[in-house]
Design a protein around this nucleic acid. Structure first.
Lengths: 345, 345
DNA sequence: GTGAAAGCGCTAACAA
DNA sequence: TTGTTAGCGCTTTCAC
């Protein structure tokens, strides 16, 4: 059967609704109605048409249908990646986001056009203007500021949403960072740790690290514990930042027994530095990260962390871009604790 | 004109090539030519048209253009995922593949429509028939056999390609597994290990594990070393399989000092079991995996592994689907060694 | 070098 | 319930 279809397709003459109409003995518009589920078409007619369509291997031409209806039925997803790098190096976090955006779009009857963009000469945000998409979801690394600057005007438009922009923005979805910080604090306290510290850059362009810290600090405060000290040593990579921050902490010989790292990459670096220093995790020090996914599942010890709910993240990004929710209604994406072994039970 | 009626249905008056033509004082067809770079258009005319288009914020309507030309200019990428799971759980390996397929498509002037498919009720391979795409690339987990069975007929068609199908197939691209096995052997030997063993299921539906083993074995044979023993203990996850296989190996008290694991997940499990048993890696035993990416970057010790070149993988998948290369010309994707710390220098 | 006109394949308003 | 008809916005002969 597939063979027949392909033969007729390749015979230059494409099967159109007119062909189906002729074979079913009805008008072309009736074919259109029947195949689009118009209830006014009688059962026998509909059946004859469906049969004819099947016989001929007919399928509605999406381009024509959408040209006529004026819609595109698709969402463009722009993934911003680091310049000079291939998609191989994209953060798994962003891939998970991408996947969930596509899934959510699909659940709402939309197709997803995805575009990886890293270099200025390929920046492109014209998907809606060219009628390739009805809405645009932007996500990716905050480090490619040129890309975000390019797309910035987009985020003034209602048919967009984003995750990870390095600037405050009404159409940005983000994790409920404060709640994440709070949960990290609660978990550490529950593990019996009392001298807690935060590793991360409070002045990062993205406000999320600061928010995590604030949630952490406020939760401790509610337990009558003073604002925890923060450490941050800059470096090329997040992992290295974590490593150096721990070394700094150790050099300062502070009495620390619990560490909340603002992201898993830093936590992984921290874990490495701690191991090198002969400090037991979770025995001597408890460590907790933020991000989730598989990154810390096989570290030594496996990293306990806070993970946002990617499914809701995808859904909120799509809903916001499609105008199904207002920016104001886009609350932080819920987070949950991923229990592994870097914090004592 | 009657256009006013349809205009009132749309949120805003759409700017068409007729509007641009009017403003530039030329015929609509001239606008089309100019904006498509037709060399027969004189410089002044072209300039006037471009100016008018810019003034009006005009962009070619992609749907109309493609309906008229008969092409779609897009590639559909179907990502097969595990039933009941969200895209959050997609293997990073497949995400990297997806990203590189999109990038390669884009480099060839195609857009990428991506579709995550896990449940039977949403299986869909009609992208070409519906003229949503000119070609289809299939990839994802081999474990969703229902999905692969559904799409199997597709793989008889020339406008397709795939990675990871659980059956032999002319349109399948895969890593140069034999070469990978060979490199693993060479590296282990170079580290001074002599009693090597292979962990993996030689009877897996996918032939790749077997191929890796064969490359491994043949390379050893070239060095005058007999075919290495293989171990495999089944379990729910790859990681657990690796763990159990190592325990089995230890229980059998075989004299092993080098391990080639058929994939990184198993290697990670192996590393864990070895650590539990108090065996030093890479001191007592050298371990090498296969897959790459970040999975083993933060294990203890970081995992030395064989990684396929994702960029060529993406390019080959796209080329094959677009008919730019023949199935016979699709050689294995090159692999390289990712040096970390689970094998002695 | 540019204009005129004919559709690409479909949906939907209006008739019957 | 079904047929008639008019475009959706564009590319592409064919004229001139």
């Amino acid at each position: 059967m597939l063979r027949e279809e392909s033969v007729s397709q390749e015979k230059a003459t494409r099967v159109t609704s007119f062909d189906v109409a002729e074979r079913a003995g009805v008008n072309q518009s009736t074919v259109s109605r029947a195949l689009n589920g118009d209830p006014s078409i009688s059962a026998p007619t509909r059946h004859r048409i469906e049969q004819a369509a099947a016989d001929l291997g007919y399928h509605i031409d999406d381009r024509a249908a959408r040209l006529r209806t004026g819609k595109t039925g698709t969402i463009a997803v722009i993934v911003i990646t680091r310049p000079g790098r291939s998609p191989t190096d994209v953060n798994p976090f962003h891939y998970a986001l991408l996947g969930n955006v596509c899934a959510s779009a699909s659940a709402k009857g939309y197709r997803s056009l995805v575009s990886f963009q890293s270099e200025a000469e390929h920046f492109d945000s014209g998907f809606v203007q060219r009628r390739q998409a009805d809405a645009i979801v932007l996500l990716g690394t905050a480090t490619n500021t040129a890309a975000w600057d390019f797309h910035r005007p987009l985020l003034g438009r209602p048919e967009t949403s984003c995750w990870g922009a390095p600037f405050e923005n009404a159409r940005r979805i983000k994790a409920d960072n404060r709640d994440g910080g709070r949960r990290a604090a609660e978990r550490l306290l529950q593990g019996g740790y009392r001298n807690l510290s935060f590793i991360g850059d409070l002045d990062d362009r993205q406000s999320q690290f600061r928010e995590r810290y604030e949630g952490f600090r406020d939760a401790l405060s509610a337990h009558g514990i003073a604002a925890p000290p923060t450490v941050f040593e800059d470096a090329e990579t997040r992992v290295e930042q974590g490593r150096r921050s721990v070394r700094r902490l150790l050099a300062d010989s502070q009495e620390i027994d619990g560490l909340f790292c603002c992201c898993d990459a830093m936590a992984l670096g921290a874990l490495g530095a701690l191991e090198n220093a002969g400090i037991e995790v979770p025995g001597d020090i408890g460590v907790i990260g933020f991000d989730g996914l598989g990154s810390g599942a096989h570290s030594s010890p496996p990293l306990t962390t806070i993970e946002p709910d990617f499914t809701s993240a995808g859904a909120m990004l799509v809903d916001l871009a499609l105008g199904a929710i207002e920016p104001a209604a886009a609350k932080g994406v819920p987070v949950h604790l991923v229990e592994r072994s870097s914090v004592r039970r």
